[in-house]
Amino acid sequence: MKQLKTLAFIAVGFTICLGLKSCTQPSQIATQSTNQLQGKLVLTGSSTVAPLAAEIGKRFESKYPDVRVDVQTGGSSRGIADVRTGVADVGMVSRSLKDEETDLQSFAIASDGIGIILHKDNPVKSLSNQQVLDIYTGKIDNWQQVNGNNAPITVVNKAEGRSTLELFLNYFQIQNSEIKSSVVIGDNQQGIKTVAGNPNAISYVSIGTAEFSLTSGITIKLLPLNEIAATTENIQNQTFPLSRPLNLVTKTQPEGLKQAFIEFAQSPQVHDIVQKQEFVPISK
């Protein structure tokens, strides 16, 4: 009789477990949900956001081994176009969305500023907004005119479709057709390499990228703007006048793998990556 009671107790317990879809199932579900993400994400766009997104992607892949994150550059305009046509799952855009782009979904993952850079051996320590404008429109064409060396100025401009160009033009209230450029470059690294290799060059690039290059010993320097130092600290305290959000964009409200990646890119789990690349983390 005692044995029958024991068997009956086990049977009841087993029945209860089945009613709850097994006593061990919750832990199994948790394990599955941790590893259920799989597939490939294609991100295209801003050369400023790309290195950051690539590092976030590597950490995301380590968390979800069945996921691959493919990051390609080409400028913010490409990111917008590729998301709209379905070529990319997620676009990278280093500016706020324009009025004609508000049909897209935008998610900030960091913030950055745009700074004027010169070669570190250029004796010019600062330029007024008007002097920068006059240099880029050809009214000032020799460094001697702004207390520099007697040498012609090499004006480095960004190519069409680059968000840094759009922000630069908007801030200085000029058209691209007014700029008298000596060299037209694509991404930030090209601008930094051009200035580092030419003591008479001037360019404008991501402050985060420039600061990262400075720590690597690249021969450039950042100039203040409106007498405010071009630093990530001043971007964070919102005193630097030329700053921007770094965004991920999607065609519709993201779901599944896209949603998981974007939430991860906005989380404190990647703040160390954001700071390592000299950008300012977004607090959510």
Rank of each mutant, 00 (worst) to 15 (best):
L52K: 03
A201T: 00
F240N: 03
S96A: 14
A88C: 09
T209C: 04
I185A: 08
Q32R: 14
E263T: 13
P281F: 15
I218V: 15
A11K: 03
G208K: 02
P241F: 01
R68E: 15
N226H: 09
S181H: 13
S213P: 06
S163N: 05
Q238S: 14
F240C: 04
Q238W: 03
A54C: 02
E160G: 11
Q259N: 14
A108F: 06
P224H: 07
H119I: 00
S47G: 15
E263M: 11
I80N: 11
G186A: 10
P281E: 14
S177R: 12
A229K: 12
T34C: 14
R59Y: 06
K193G: 02
S182I: 05
Q275C: 09
S243D: 12
T48E: 08
G45K: 01
R95F: 04
Q130D: 13
D141Y: 10
T85I: 07
Y64P: 11
W143S: 06
Q3P: 03
I174C: 05
S216K: 15
Q131D: 08
T164K: 01
L165I: 06
P224C: 07
R162P: 00
K98H: 11
G138I: 07
I207W: 02
L104A: 12
I202L: 01
V124D: 00
R162L: 08
T219Y: 06
Q253A: 13
R68F: 15
I56F: 07
S243W: 03
E160F: 11
K5E: 13
E61R: 06
F240V: 02
S76T: 07
I273K: 04
K180I: 11
